[in-house]
Amino acid sequence: MIGTLATGFGFWNPLMWIIVIVVAIFFSWLLWKLGETNYEGNIWQTAPYLSGNDEPEKEAIHIRAGNMYWGFTKALSVYYDHLIPLHSGIVSDYISWFLIGVVVLFMVVILV
């Protein structure tokens, strides 16, 4: 069958995958069609409840990149505190790392 990639341990066929996804979407649509038909959008009942405060302008509540994954970097702060300074932007540091890399590789190749 066209598209079947044998990986040596199994196979992968993107066309079959797409068929499965289309069938899943179809059944999702069927479920959705079985839902309530008298739903009304854009009325006071659908507005977010913010403890009685007015909803802010959309532009003011855009979640920007800096709001994301700060917890991840915070949790790994020990790792990042060591890793980021290595990327100092100083070219002499870069050359030093290059030379260290050469020496380490040579030692490994010779000794192991």
């Binding site: 959309k58 855009h62 920007r64 990149a65 994301m68 994954y69």
Partner: peptide, 12 residues
């Protein structure tokens, strides 16, 4: 993160 912060959200 990149997709959301560049393309998603309200028009600025």
């Amino acid at each position: 993160k990149v997709f959301h912060s560049v393309f998603m959200g309200p028009e600025l």
